[in-house]
Amino acid sequence: MQIFVKTLTGKTITLEVEPSDTIENVKAKIQDKEGIPPDQQRLIFAGKQLEDGRTLSDYNIQKDSTLHLVLR
């Protein structure tokens, strides 16, 4: 499925993911596309910070959802 990741600069990254993918996995995909190390990434969805060990389906993230990427 496709999800979107919006950065603070207003750029939107499109990712191909599975509901069973972990947040860690998603961060690795963002690193592949953007070169941002996962340890600098914070992903936010519906006002919640997403934890590495959980999956997209744990957070009820569905296709065409938009996550927000904050760098630390």
Rank of each mutant, 00 (worst) to 15 (best):
R72I: 12
Q2R: 10
K48W: 10
Q31P: 02
L8D: 09
T66L: 02
K11A: 10
R42Y: 15
N25L: 09
T9Y: 04
I30D: 00
T22E: 04
L43V: 08
H68T: 05
D32L: 06
Q49A: 12
E24Q: 10
D64V: 02
G35P: 02
T14N: 04
T66Y: 03
T7R: 05
E18M: 12
K29W: 10
T66K: 06
A28V: 15
K6F: 11
A28Y: 14
P19I: 14
M1T: 09
K48N: 03
T12S: 05
E18N: 15
G53I: 12
N25D: 14
D52T: 08
D64E: 09
K27H: 02
G53H: 10
V26G: 00
V5Y: 02
K29D: 08
T55G: 04
G35Y: 09
L67G: 01
I3E: 00
F45Q: 03
R72Y: 05
K27M: 04
L50S: 01
D21F: 05
P37V: 07
R72M: 12
K33A: 11
S65F: 10
I44S: 15
Q40M: 11
T66G: 04
P19T: 13
N60T: 14
E16Q: 12
L15H: 01
V5T: 02
F45R: 03
G10Y: 15
L43P: 01
Q62I: 10
R42P: 01
S65W: 05
K48I: 15
T22K: 06
K11S: 07
T22Q: 10
R42H: 13
Q31T: 08
I30F: 02
A46D: 03
T55M: 15
T55P: 10
L71P: 03
L43A: 01
D58I: 13
D32W: 13
L15F: 14
I3L: 13
Q49S: 15
Q2Y: 05
S20A: 10
L71Y: 04
S65H: 04
D58F: 04
E34D: 08
K48Y: 12
T22M: 08
D52E: 05
T22P: 10
K33G: 10
D58E: 03
T7S: 10
R42F: 06
T9S: 06
F4T: 04
V17W: 02
G47T: 13
L50M: 08
Q31M: 03
P19K: 12
Y59M: 12
G35T: 09
K6N: 15
T14A: 04
L56V: 07
S57L: 13
Q40S: 12
R42L: 10
Q41N: 14
D58G: 13
V26P: 00
M1L: 11
V70D: 12
G35A: 10
I36F: 15
D58W: 06
K11W: 10
D32Y: 11
F4V: 10
I44Y: 08
R54H: 11
Q49L: 11
T66F: 11
V17I: 05
G35R: 09
L67N: 01
E51Q: 03
L8I: 14
G35H: 12
R54E: 10
N25G: 09
H68W: 02
D21I: 07
M1F: 04
Q41G: 11
E16G: 09
G10I: 05
L71K: 10
I13T: 03
I44V: 08
K11D: 10
E18Q: 04
Q2T: 11
D64R: 10
L15W: 01
D64W: 06
P19S: 13
E16H: 11
L43E: 00
D21R: 06
T66N: 12
D52Q: 11
N25R: 13
I3P: 00
D64H: 09
V17H: 05
I30M: 11
Q49N: 06
R54W: 13
D58H: 15
Q31S: 13
K27E: 01
L50N: 00
E18Y: 15
L67S: 01
E24S: 10
H68N: 14
T9I: 07
Q62N: 13
G53M: 05
Q31A: 10
K6Y: 13
L67K: 01
Q49Y: 14
M1H: 06
G35Q: 10
S20T: 12
P38A: 12
V5G: 01
K33H: 03
V17E: 01
S20K: 11
Q49W: 14
L15I: 10
L67F: 12
L50K: 00
V26F: 02
P19R: 15
V26D: 00
L69H: 01
Q31H: 12
D58V: 09
S20L: 14
I36H: 13
I36K: 07
G35M: 05
V5P: 00
L15Q: 01
P37F: 10
K27R: 12
Y59S: 13
E34T: 06
L69K: 00
S65P: 01
E18G: 05
T9L: 09
I61F: 14
T9H: 13
V70A: 09
E34F: 04
L8G: 15
R42D: 06
R42K: 04
V70S: 07
E51V: 15
Q41H: 14
E24H: 15
L8P: 11
K63F: 04
R72A: 07
Q2I: 14
P37D: 11
K29L: 13
I13L: 08
V70M: 12
A46K: 13
D58S: 05
G47R: 03
I23A: 10
D39R: 15
T9E: 11
R72E: 05
L43S: 00
I3D: 00
I61N: 00
T7V: 09
D32K: 06
Q62K: 10
R54S: 09
A28M: 06
E51T: 05
T12K: 08
T12M: 15
T9D: 03
R72F: 04
N25S: 09
I36W: 13
F4I: 07
L69Y: 02
M1A: 03
P37Q: 05
